[in-house]
C-alpha cells in the first residue's frame, strides 16, 4: 500500500503567559491510501492538536516545535502559508466536532459549498453549483437544489454535519480528518453519519482519520487505532489488537469504563481514577503512571519506549519489558 501521510516525532506546544504547554510531545504514526484509522484519547490527550498541526490550524500561540508531517512526501510542517492554503480543503478536508458553530451563519449552505470548488478547482459558478448539488445528494440530503439557498440555521444538527461532510469532500480530498464528527449528535443520527462515512470511503476512496473518545465509534470504521495519552501515543495497533489484546493499562481502563449493554447482571463500572496530567509541567516518566494501578518505580522516572508486541502493535508501557512482572489484562470482555 502506498503511504499517504507520515508523521514523524511531532511536537506541538502552546506558549501561554504561564509557560509552555506541551500538547503533543513526540508523536509518530502513518496512514496508507484508502485506509481509515482512529485516534482515541480523552480531552487533553493531544489528539485534536495533532490533527490541527497537520492542517496547520493552530491558534496564534501554538507552534510545531519539532517533527515532520509528510503528506505524499511533502513536509506540511514547513510549507509556506500560501502553499498550505492549496492543501487545506483541497487535498485534506476536515470535519469539526460541532456542526452548530463550524458553518458560517450569514452565508447560504450553497455559497459555502461552492467556495472551495471555485477557489481550488477553478470551476465556473454553474459547474460549482451542480457539483455542490451532487455532493448534497451524495450525503443524503433530500431536495438538495432547494436546500442550496438555505442558511445553516434552517438545518438540524445531523443535516448540518452532512453539509460539513459534503463540504469537506467536495474537492475530493485524498485525506479526510474527522474530529469527533458524531459527538454532538444522537445515536440514531450518529449511526447514519458513520454509515455514510463508510459508504463514501468506498465510493471515493478517501483515507480517513477519525478522532474520538468513543471506542464504539472506531470499532466499526477503522482498521487501525492509535490510543493517545498525555501528548504521546500510548498504544498503536490494528483494531483487533487494541480490543482483544490490549497491552497498555490506559487502554484497559478505556475499555473497562464503558458499560457492556449485554451484561444483565449489574456490575460496577471501573473508572480510571484521577485526572489527566498537566501538560504545562509534563511528568518525567510515563504520563499515565500517577493514575495507573500497576505503576512501578521506573514508570515515575523514565518515559517508556514503544515496545513492539507484534507486527504493527506497539505499547508504551514498562510492563511489556522482558524483565517486568507479568500482569493479566483485567478486561471483562473475556467473560461475555
Amino acid at each position: 500500500m502506498e503511504r499517504l501521510l507520515e508523521i514523524k516525532n511531532l511536537r506541538t506546544s502552546f506558549f501561554t503567559h504561564v509557560g509552555e504547554v506541551q500538547a503533543v510531545r513526540g508523536v509518530s504514526f502513518h496512514l496508507d491510501k484508502g485506509e481509515a484509522i482512529g485516534i482515541v484519547g480523552e480531552s487533553g490527550s493531544g489528539k485534536s492538536i495533532t490533527m490541527m498541526s497537520v492542517m496547520r490550524l493552530l491558534a496564534d500561540n501554538g507552534k510545531i516545535v519539532e517533527g515532520e508531517i509528510l503528506f505524499e512526501g511533502r513536509d506540511l510542517a514547513k510549507l509556506p502559508e500560501n502553499e498550505m492554503q492549496k492543501v487545506r480543503g483541497n487535498e485534506i478536508g476536515m470535519i469539526f466536532q460541532d456542526p452548530m458553530t463550524s458553518l458560517n451563519p450569514v452565508l447560504t449552505v450553497g455559497d459555502q459549498l461552492m467556495e472551495p470548488l471555485i477557489k481550488h478547482k477553478k470551476m465556473s459558478k454553474e459547474e460549482a453549483f451542480n457539483r455542490a448539488v451532487h455532493m448534497l445528494e451524495l450525503v443524503g440530503i433530500p431536495s438538495p437544489k432547494s436546500r442550496m439557498s438555505q442558511y445553516p440555521h434552517e438545518f438540524s444538527g445531523g443535516m448540518r454535519q452532512r453539509v460539513m461532510i459534503a463540504m469537506a469532500l467536495a474537492c475530493e480530498p485524498k485525506l479526510l480528518i474527522a474530529d469527533e464528527p458524531t459527538t454532538a449528535l444522537d445515536v440514531t443520527i450518529q449511526a447514519q453519519i458513520l454509515e455514510l462515512m463508510k459508504d463514501l470511503k468506498q465510493k471515493i476512496n478517501t483515507s480517513i482519520i477519525l478522532i474520538t473518545h468513543d471506542l464504539g465509534v472506531v470499532a466499526d470504521l477503522c482498521s487501525r487505532i492509535n490510543v493517545m495519552y498525555g501528548g504521546l501515543i500510548a498504544e498503536t495497533g490494528t483494531t483487533r489488537d487494541i480490543f482483544y489484546n490490549p497491552k497498555h493499562p490506559y487502554t484497559w481502563g478505556l475499555l473497562n469504563s464503558v458499560p457492556n449493554p449485554k451484561n444483565l447482571v449489574k456490575e460496577r463500572l471501573k473508572p480510571i481514577d484521577g485526572q489527566p496530567p498537566d501538560l504545562l509541567k509534563p511528568p518525567a516518566g510515563c504520563p499515565f503512571a500517577p493514575r495507573c494501578q500497576y505503576a512501578m518505580r521506573i514508570c515515575m522516572t523514565q518515559r517508556p519506549p514503544l515496545f513492539e508486541i507484534g507486527e504493527g502493535h506497539k505499547a508504551a508501557c514498562w510492563l511489556n519489558h522482558k524483565d517486568a512482572p507479568k500482569v493479566e489484562a483485567p478486561i471483562r470482555r473475556g467473560d461475555l
Partner: peptide, 13 residues
C-alpha cells in the same frame, strides 16, 4: 435505538 448503539467490540459490531 438499541441497534444504533456503537459496540466497543469489532467482531460483535
Amino acid at each position: 435505538l438499541l441497534s444504533a448503539i456503537p459496540i466497543p467490540d469489532p467482531d460483535e459490531s
